[in-house]
Design a protein around this nucleic acid. Sequence first.
DNA 1: GCGAATCGTTCATCTTGTGAATGATGTATT
DNA 2: AATACATCATTCACAAGATGAACGATTCGC
Lengths: 136, 136
Amino acid sequence: MAFRIGTLGAIVTERFTAAIVPLDLKPKHVGLMTLLEARGAASQLDVARAMGVAPSLVVTLADHLERLGAISRVRDPDDRRRQVLDLTDDGRALLGRCLEVTLELDAELTGGLGPGDRAVLAKVLGALAAQAGLPI
Amino acid sequence: MAFRIGTLGAIVTERFTAAIVPLDLKPKHVGLMTLLEARGAASQLDVARAMGVAPSLVVTLADHLERLGAISRVRDPDDRRRQVLDLTDDGRALLGRCLEVTLELDAELTGGLGPGDRAVLAKVLGALAAQAGLPI
DNA sequence: GCGAATCGTTCATCTTGTGAATGATGTATT
DNA sequence: AATACATCATTCACAAGATGAACGATTCGC
């Protein structure tokens, strides 16, 4: 059975990217905030490793999120090399709006499905996320 | 119910991209070949419109596929502005190997699922593909 | 204390993609 | 038939996203 899941992944990604443009966010920003929400405060290097991304990219992402007021960024007093990131209340609110957008997209994409099918899809995607080590 | 389908889309896309590296292909190359397989020969502008991509990008993609011997590229004798692309036999074989890779990835991602769940997933993704106007 | 490792940042660079300019060809109007 | 306009492919300059190497500031092991 050929799902062509790769091509579909690209389409879904594209739609999601477009859907969060009004929030002034890119998918990686959402990924970073989601990570902070799930794990609590973390150093930039921790974030880079968890996201599978170069540390220099985290600088850029954190710059942007800090400018939006979505995260705080303070030197760890116990190790002043570390820059500790954490979600602000504004950040949590912003992440809430991301969730709304996500739900709308989910609804749009799975509109034709019955409740049973939706449950199965949720299970499948949950398993997929767990496999990817993703908080969901 | 939050599927976080956007984030998952990114993960799947990434995996697919990695999986076709050995074939010297990127996802868009596969998209172009799939299009030619489904619709038959097409001009570069047709391809650009169908893929939702700039015509100048099709030049690059076609250059690469032509170098691989996967597509032919001939001037339309009836309208010599048009450069007509078509899959070669080698291209069809290459696309076959892409399908194998896709099937392996599908199997890997849905390994823990029962046959009923897989059927539902196939249906859901099929509907999604149809909605995106994608041949599947 | 001193050399080595770690963390964040900057910088040069690569890749992917777009959009404008160009040249070749085709179409329409007169 | 000639001229103006539109269309197609191509090239070029450029923007965005991401990487890796170099560097400065720290901290750790000895």
